[in-house]
């Protein structure tokens, strides 16, 4: 019986310390969700979508985003993250539906009026390489790095286009874009109320809008518009895609 108080105390301690561990998670009061669409429709791998009078498939879509920052009315800023990697089409997904990618942050309560986004890896981080980062870090990913051009691959879009017009997309589309020259930023206005307990924002990328150029869709019959897979090859195409990112973004 003498031990009873000790045991109770020990139990209490265990209880308290386990509470401690949970605390930082519940503290995070702001959720940022990234979604992907094609022409307003939910994105799905290996599904045919209309592209002018032909069909197109988008079978891979991922991107780095830098300097995610919430902006207050007075222009002051609340940094959410230096860098995130958003993969809408992970290998191990259970089906072909593009996944929603969520991040949680701790943010002071308040009314925020905009979200700043950097498309790609901002130059000082892009000067580093995967071996410079810990395994948990978004920039640890070796598969998203071009050793030949010392740059991260900012964004990857891959798919197929019905070039021969026979009905099923068969011609490859590969847009691997990177290098400091194609880093882009934007500020998306929105009403973003955040309380101590919760706050949320959804950012949507419409892949079809990545293909808009000079008021129309890129002409995919032109082979120069179908593939760019390293920054020394078809940088013009890489620039077009990255230029379009802000236009392809909506926040809710």
């Amino acid at each position: 019986m003498k031990f009873l108080p000790t045991i109770l105390f020990a139990l209490l301690f265990v209880f308290i310390s386990s509470c401690d561990k949970d605390e930082p998670q519940t503290e995070k009061n702001f959720t940022l969700t990234f979604k992907s669409t094609y022409g307003g429709l939910a994105l799905e791998k290996y599904k045919n979508y209309p592209y002018d009078d032909r069909d197109i498939q988008v079978n891979k879509f991922n991107t780095f985003l830098s300097d995610l920052i919430l902006v207050r009315q007075d222009g002051s800023e609340q940094r959410l993250s230096d860098i995130e990697w958003v993969d809408f089409t992970p290998d191990l997904a259970p089906d072909n539906k593009a996944v929603d990618v969520k991040f949680q942050y701790t943010v002071p309560a308040g009314n925020y009026t905009a979200l700043k986004i950097g498309y790609g890896v901002r130059p000082d981080l892009n000067a580093k390489k995967p071996a410079d980062f810990a395994p948990e870090h978004p920039l640890y990913r070796e598969n998203e790095y071009w050793s030949g051009w010392q740059s991260y691959i900012f964004t990857k879009v891959q798919g197929l286009y019905d070039l021969d017009g026979a009905g099923d997309p068969e011609s490859t589309l590969t847009y691997h874009c990177g290098s400091d020259a194609v880093y882009r930023t934007s500020t998306m206005n929105a009403t973003i109320p955040v309380t101590d307990k919760s706050g949320a924002l959804t950012v949507e990328f419409d892949v079809k809008k990545l293909f808009y150029y000079n008021g129309g869709l890129l002409d995919l019959d032109d082979p120069l518009n179908r593939n760019t897979s390293h920054n020394a090859s078809n940088i013009d195409l890489g620039i077009k895609v990255m230029d379009n990112f802000a236009n392809a973004t909506t926040v809710k």
Binding site: T172, L224, N227, T228, S233, N234, L237
Partner: peptide, 9 residues
């Protein structure tokens, strides 16, 4: 695309 000349072009 294996064996294509000049990258994406």
């Amino acid at each position: 695309q294996i064996g294509f000349p000049l990258g994406g072009n």
